[in-house]
């Protein structure tokens, strides 16, 4: 489904701030794959996502999704088939617009509405939005006329998730999308993610700092370091792995221990 071929990206080349963010990343993700990505801060996880969504054009390499070369396609064209959630729950919604209006915008990604610039939100649309919102089980279906700015972070992230998957994307990118939420809400958003991804069979990449999650969610685990994928495990080998095995792998591949508090803490939880 998703093919990344030898992607390189250097920020601020030729200056003291030069940073090789991606250093030859190649990845082949099969349709329906759900891969988790771990790695310490600055390993290039988010940069990899930005390369896929078109925030910048890589210095080298290409991005191919479902046989279509996206490498030089602008961001807004790619978003038709790629959903992207960030850690910050405020990034995915327009705060001064109502829930209903936000959903209507997300629904623009459906081809049928592409040219219907002057169409308005119909009763059928509202009914459809209401059904989808009810699935979130947050009572949002009765607040459709309220501005999104009034919702809590968790509610906004759940809404963003719904908006990203309202029109089924070919690829869903989750960049620590539950990290800024309280544990109970995080759990809830994660459950929603799992059920939506499973139901719609969406190919999915998810960055997490929770080692336990990295091994139990989805069917594949990737580890990144210094702009490269240093470890890639799936199938039986993955099923047999423990959090300690994963940390040990990291030590071997990166030549250093994981220095991130959050990772160590999440190890303790796992």
């Amino acid at each position: 489904m998703l093919q990344l071929l030898n992607i390189h990206k250097t920020f601020n080349p030729g200056t003291v701030n030069e940073k090789k963010a991606l250093n030859g990343v190649s990845l082949d993700l099969a349709a329906g794959d759900f891969a988790t990505i771990v790695g310490s801060n600055g390993a290039g996880k988010s940069t990899l996502f930005t390369a896929i969504t078109g925030g910048f054009i890589p210095d080298e390499g290409s991005v191919i999704l479902d046989g279509e070369d996206l490498t030089f396609l602008p961001e807004y064209r790619r978003s038709k088939t790629i959903g992207h959630l960030f850690q910050d729950p405020l990034r995915g919604t327009a705060p001064h617009m109502t829930i209903e209006e936000n959903l209507a915008l997300a629904y623009l990604r459906a081809g049928t509405h592409q040219n219907a610039f002057f169409s308005r939100i119909s009763r059928a649309d509202k009914e459809r939005f209401r059904e989808h919102l009810a699935l979130l089980d947050m009572g949002l279906e009765d607040r459709m006329k309220q501005p999104v700015g009034l919702l809590s972070g968790g509610q906004r992230q759940a809404l963003t998730l719904l908006m990203a998957t309202l029109v089924t994307p070919k690829l869903l990118l989750l960049d620590e999308h539950t990290a800024a939420l309280d544990p109970a809400t995080a759990e809830k958003v994660l459950e929603l993610t799992k059920s939506i991804v499973a139901e719609k069979k969406i190919t999915c990449l998810m960055v997490t700092h929770n080692m336990h999650q990295a091994l139990t969610l989805g069917n594949r685990t990737l580890m990144m370091d210094s702009g490269r994928i240093v470890f890639d495990v799936k199938g039986d080998e993955r099923r047999g792995m423990t959090v300690d095995d994963l940390l040990e792998k990291f030590r071997q591949n990166a030549g250093q221990a994981l220095d991130n508090d959050r990772i160590l803490l999440s190890k303790a939880e796992g």
């Binding site: 807004y76 978003s79 992207h84 995915g92 617009m97 915008l105 308005r120």
Partner: peptide, 25 residues
């Protein structure tokens, strides 16, 4: 109130979200 109008309103509110809705700000 049209979809184009909504996109214009969203552009002033959160341009990133407009881009994510496949509309060019």
């Amino acid at each position: 109130g049209t979809r184009l109008g909504l996109s214009i309103r969203a552009t002033g509110d959160n341009a990133e979200m407009v881009r994510a809705s496949s509309i060019n700000p």
